[in-house]
């Protein structure tokens, strides 16, 4: 009885004293997405977004467990309670915001097109005519490709992860890959990527589809958690921790404007 009262009191005060920290299951896509999150051979996840997550979790005093979930099922996994938060480079879009709540954005990357080296494909509807374009299932790029390229492209092929798309681009089975520029960067800079492919620049913007930067996804009813995450994010931006983390992985600013 007494312990219940104490717990209730602590909860009511919203104090995060030396009580046991809550455990949050943070969903990332099971498909690696370097440099944001990728599993190493020992099974632990690392990357820019994992570092950011750890920083947020320390500040909101939660114990976070990285939980890999197939990307194309990650929103249902959140709404049905299998995970408590998504930190998987999920772009904030109006369509998604109807289903889940988003934190403030923590980075923004343009969507761009990668093609075979020397290809004359351009990141426009006419530019991709006849081409096989690959997009990741459940990504904003899939929506974008369906909206703008469906009529002109030879085919839009849907992959479960970006790595497999890029592999197929290298194999020549795709003429172009539409994807997040920052996520495609490691491949573009790799030896294999340099040999076969080139970056063609960003696609024409459409915030309705391409959204307003990446944020953490939360259940709509978890408003209190959302407020804490946003507060932590603001602090991380302000005190320079954000830039420290970013410098480990990128040479450019990725917050956008």
């Amino acid at each position: 009885m007494f312990s219940k009262l104490t717990l209730a009191a602590v909860a009511a005060l919203g104090l995060a004293g030396p009580v046991m920290a809550e455990t949050l299951k943070v969903g990332v896509s099971a498909e690696p997405y370097p440099p944001f999150f990728t599993p190493d051979a020992s099974g632990s996840w690392s990357g820019w977004e994992i570092d950011l997550m750890n920083e947020i979790c320390t500040r909101i005093e939660a114990e976070c467990v990285v939980t890999p979930i197939a990307w194309d099922g990650i929103i249902p996994a959140l709404t049905t309670g299998k995970i408590d938060m998504i930190m998987g480079s999920m772009t904030i879009t109006p369509a998604r915001a109807e289903q889940i709540a988003f934190s403030d954005k923590y980075y923004a990357a343009p969507t761009g097109l990668m093609t075979q080296k020397g290809s004359d494909i351009e990141p426009t509807a006419e530019g991709v005519s006849g081409a096989f374009v690959g997009a990741q299932s459940g990504s904003i790029q899939e929506v974008y490709a369906n909206k703008y390229y469906a009529d002109t492209a030879g085919a839009i092929r849907i992959y479960q992860n970006l790595d497999e798309e890029l592999q197929d681009l290298a194999a020549g089975r795709l003429d172009a890959v539409i994807g997040d520029t920052l996520a495609m960067q490691p491949f573009a800079e790799s030896e294999a990527g340099q040999a076969c492919c080139e970056y063609k620049g960003a696609v024409e913007p459409d915030p309705e589809v391409l959204g307003y930067g990446a944020g953490a996804g939360l259940r709509q009813e978890d408003t209190e958690l959302l407020a804490r995450v946003n507060k932590a994010l603001a602090e991380i931006r302000e005190d320079g921790t954000y830039d420290q983390i970013t410098q480990k992985y990128f040479t450019v600013d990725i917050y956008g404007d």
């Binding site: 194309d72 929103i75 369509a95 690959g134 299932s137 899939e142 929506v143 369906n146 092929r157 849907i158």
Partner: peptide, 20 residues
Amino acid sequence: ITVTDLYAVITRIRQTTLLT
């Protein structure tokens, strides 16, 4: 492996509608 069979079409619909 990107073949657009019935299951793939349903997956695409699930992505656009975000219905579980």
